Amino acid sequence: MKIAVMGAGAVGCYYGAMLARAGHEVTLIGRPGHVDAVNRDGLLFEFQSTKSFIEMKADTDARAIAGAGLVLFCVKSTDTADAGAQMKPFLGKDTIVMSLQNGVDNAERLSAVIGQPVIPTVVYVATSMEGPGHVKHHGRGELVIGRSDQSDAVAKTLRPAHIPVEISDNAQGALWAKMILNCAYNALSAIAQKPYGELVQSDGIWEVMRNAVDECMAVAAGCGVTVPGDVWGAIEKIVDTMPGQYSSTAQDLARGKPSEIDYLNGYIVRKGAELGIATPTNLALYAMTKLREGSSVA
């Protein structure tokens, strides 16, 4: 299959590399320096104990999506509308589009822009960009996707590429579960510039995280969302499965880039205000991250 990755950051490059290794024709759409490196040498892919260059195409223009049967949409939540508008003219009517993004409303927002269905996708992978044309995998890699007419076809494409896929009847709840995990870890990792395993060794951090999660669960209930599974148990396990991982928010701030905090803790604060639910811990985490984001010191 011809597959395009719109937003060739750490998540997009990881899944693009896995699919290219499985024999699919993958095109990455990203920034010029990254695109130049991939077109020159291939994508340097650190996976488990190996390093290899994966040959694939790369482009800075959304027109490279033309002809793709599957698009992995991996841009930051802040860029959803603009990136969707850029790629809309080049999508086929039968192109499958997946939103591999943080937050809970990106698939809905993207669908409104492009005028066709978008599969909401929850991403559980630890990965980072180590430089232009260089992605490093730190752990996990599974996806949870919403059930639709296209979900079986997606699973049959991804699973042979060693990408675990769960098809969920409660995709919205799964998105909330991931967002709550992000609300617990991302801001703290960004503020402290520490990986998860080191972060939780500091006094009071577990209590702060528990307070943030309790607020998130109250807002989810207020929105009528059923959050599946043992959310707190999953949060506790992260320090075992991803101890060396810095949050995506931490990585953004370290590079001097805008973060997605408005779509994580900020989203909880806004929804809480609408519903009359107090969210003081999330507000503090949001406000401190915005201060750090606006600082000249990464």
Rank of each mutant, 00 (worst) to 15 (best):
S148D: 11
G67Y: 14
A221R: 14
L199S: 01
N211G: 10
A278Y: 08
M209A: 03
M288E: 08
D149V: 12
T281Q: 07
S202E: 13
I261L: 14
E46I: 04
C223R: 04
T60I: 14
A153G: 11
I261C: 11
D36Q: 11
K51C: 11
Y15K: 00
G139N: 00
V219Q: 04
G294H: 06
D230S: 12
D36M: 04
Q245P: 02
G146A: 10
I238K: 05
E108T: 08
P132M: 07
V125N: 05
G256Y: 02
V213Q: 00
K88E: 13
L253D: 03
F90S: 10
A177F: 10
T78R: 10
T27R: 06
L264P: 11
N102C: 07
N265V: 13
R21D: 07
L175W: 06
D214E: 14
A66M: 15
E274Q: 15
K2I: 12
E166W: 03
L175R: 00
E142C: 13
T241D: 09
E198C: 05
A221W: 00
G131D: 15
R270W: 10
E130G: 08
I205E: 01
G23I: 09
G67E: 15
E108Q: 14
K194P: 02
Y15E: 00
L291M: 14
Y267L: 14
W176M: 06
T289L: 08
D169Q: 15
M288P: 07
A287N: 08
C216N: 05
K57P: 03
G173T: 05
M217T: 13
A220D: 07
G139T: 06
T95M: 07
E207N: 10
V154L: 03
G222C: 02
V35T: 12
E207F: 01
D203P: 04
G16L: 07
S202G: 10
S148Q: 05
A68L: 13
G146V: 00
R147M: 12
V11N: 00
D214H: 11
D79N: 13
E236M: 11
